[in-house]
Amino acid sequence: MPNRQIFGLVLLGVMVWLGFVVVKPFLTPLVWAAILAYVTGPYHVRIRRVCGNRPSLAATIATLVLMVVLVVPVSFLLIRLQSELADAYRDLSTKYTSQPLVLPKVVTNIPILGPALDEAVTQVWNDPELRKQQVKEWLEPWVRELAGIIGQIGRTFAQLAIMTVTLFFFYRDGDRVLEQIRGGLRKVAGEPADQYFNAVGDTTQAVVFGLIVSALAQGLIAGIGYAFIGVGPPILLGALTAVTALVPFLGTVAVWGPIGLWLLFSDRIGTGFALLAWGTFIVNPTDNILKPLLISNATDVPLVIVLFGVMGGLLAFGLVGLFLGPLILAVLFAIWRQWLAEDGDSSRSSGFGSKQ
């Protein structure tokens, strides 16, 4: 390789690294804007046709529509979350320090275990001074977390503003950006780059859309259950349920499970069983139906890849990694299968993760 090419590659690598350092503080809203622009791309194309193929006007309308549909409800939820977090803290800090805990008879009547639990609760929890000290120890970490969450809400509004501005430019200039990426792939991979690009596009849309719709559906259904049954702040609990719905193996049971058990131990037997039944038979099956329908059936990507992607992405990139992780693994899987298909290796391409 000539020295001039080596120098060019080194210079390109240095500039890419410097560019990453510059945009790193804004990486999260940029990624969200790119994901939203790509997923809602077909709707933007329709708007652009109605506007007579005027890119700036179409991008403005598409951005405003998405703000009304997505950003405004999210902003409302963030404001409500801040209020409900404060209310929940006040309830915890006052209610459980002044009220003793009485186990229901269903629990105390259990042979051997019931009397032991009742005695432990009476000696520990129902001692007023000890109860106040215990509640204080439990709440202090949550107070710090609450302050951090409230501060994060303010930063989230700033990120929403950056994401909205970026979304406009992605809508307006996205076609040119994608064509340049396609051209770069052609230089690296040759003619098969177009097939890779199409496979990546289909996979991206299905994975992101499937994860978002499945999580929002579970959060909404769970929130309706919380409000109907009369448990806690429903918007806060519904939002937490939607977030946990993205985490494999843990899932929504991490929210409604402990609440249901607490209701049972608080002698609200009917309410507790109602919430546990709602989560078990209504909320959880929603994920089992929607996620395979929207992801696996649409792209032929095994759900195990999505699950590992979610866990690894969360550890590597934080909250946005819930989408980036499975997207990266799913795209790699799609490129792998496309590469095998080019070589005509039907025996391997019809194996793991492919339709029979």
Rank of each mutant, 00 (worst) to 15 (best):
N3V: 12
Q5I: 10
Q5V: 11
F7A: 14
F7Q: 15
G8Y: 12
L9Y: 01
L11N: 13
L12Q: 09
L12W: 04
G13P: 00
G13I: 05
W17N: 11
F20C: 04
P29F: 07
L30P: 00
A37E: 09
R46T: 03
I47L: 13
V50A: 03
G52I: 06
N53Q: 08
P55D: 07
A58G: 04
I61H: 00
L64T: 11
V68Y: 00
L70T: 08
L77F: 04
R80T: 13
Q82C: 09
S83Q: 15
L85G: 08
A88W: 01
R90M: 08
S93W: 00
T97C: 04
P100V: 13
L101V: 14
L101D: 04
L101G: 02
V102H: 08
V102K: 11
L103A: 12
L103R: 11
T108W: 11
T108D: 04
T108C: 07
P111Y: 14
P111W: 13
I112N: 12
I112P: 12
A120Y: 02
V121E: 02
T122N: 06
Q123N: 15
N126V: 08
D127L: 01
P128F: 07
L130W: 13
Q134R: 15
V135K: 02
K136R: 15
E137V: 15
L139E: 11
W142I: 09
R144Q: 14
R144E: 11
E145M: 04
I149H: 01
I149N: 06
Q152L: 13
I153R: 02
R155Q: 11
A158L: 11
M163G: 09
M163S: 09
L167Q: 01
Y171P: 05
Y171M: 13
D173Y: 09
G174M: 10
R176P: 07
R176S: 14
Q180D: 12
Q180N: 13
G184D: 09
K187Y: 13
A193P: 12
D194V: 14
Y196I: 15
L211N: 03
I212C: 08
V213Q: 09
A215L: 04
L216D: 09
Q218S: 01
G223V: 03
G223N: 02
V231Y: 08
V231G: 07
L236K: 01
G238W: 01
T241N: 01
V243P: 00
F249V: 03
L250H: 02
L250G: 06
G251R: 05
V253P: 05
P258W: 01
I259T: 13
G260C: 10
G260N: 10
L261H: 10
L261T: 12
L263G: 05
L263N: 05
F265I: 10
R268S: 10
G272R: 01
A274V: 06
G279V: 04
T280H: 06
F281L: 13
L290A: 04
S296I: 01
A298I: 08
D300S: 12
I305S: 07
V306M: 04
L307R: 11
M311A: 14
G318M: 05
L319P: 08
L319Y: 10
P326D: 05
L327I: 07
Q338A: 15
Q338S: 14
Q338I: 14
W339K: 05
E342T: 10
G344H: 02
G344N: 03
D345H: 08
S346L: 12
R348T: 14
S350H: 14
G351Y: 00
F352E: 12
